[in-house]
Amino acid sequence: MEANKVLEFRDVAVTYHKGPFWNRSSTNAVKKVNLSVAEGETLGLVGESGSGKSTLGRVALGLIKPSGGSFEFAGLPFDPVLRKEGAMSVVLQHPEWALNPRLKNWVSISEPLKIQTSLTRQQRYEATLKMLSQVGLDPDFADRYPGELSGGQRQRVAIARALITKPRFILFDEAVSALDVSVQSQILNLIKELQEQLRFASIFISHDLAATRYVSDRIAVMLEGDIVEVAEAQKFYEKPDHPYSQQLYATIARNA
């Protein structure tokens, strides 16, 4: 299936330097990664803290420049103007901090529109209401503040914000990790449905293989900066190849 490639990582490496220039120490957060994500596809990125998955996610958003190799978005090197076009968005881990507590929900959700377009306030408000219903929230959430919402509701609001510009790519970085189990699956189902409707490409980063395999088409397993295995999600319901992937798999299958 040769669908359009939205993201392409070629030999991407990211190295961090610490300390003054006479005593530099370096860490290789990402060593050499080759990956691509197509339109309408969710690539799961699984690994533990320090594996480099979050760093790779930041490269995908253009927030970090690779120290080696190249990253392309829709076939061209990353250009900040993509942001102004609303090509990408992000949903992060902590529902408490996903939204500015001082702003009403509708202001947060429609902020991308305010930055990128010249829609009037009324138009933005209406776009927000449409978005709220798409993520399964009552319209009266629009005028409330984040502090009045539960974790799951805040993540929905964050997802609404991520979708409002109809982006080509959404990054989910530990987006359900801080939620209760019964709420996690609400959000995972929502992500799946929305992707089917809207066909955005996405990378789903998580340390939780169980959640990742449910929501992803393909999964890449990262260990200490390297990708040790890439396979269809199905594989991770049976038995993955690499010993490290097997370790992760074992913690879910423990109860079988």
Partner: peptide, 17 residues
Amino acid sequence: KAAAGNEKPGERLEPIG
């Protein structure tokens, strides 16, 4: 039923609303 990990491939998780 709602917890990811116990489902079969392709089976839908049923969240607790």
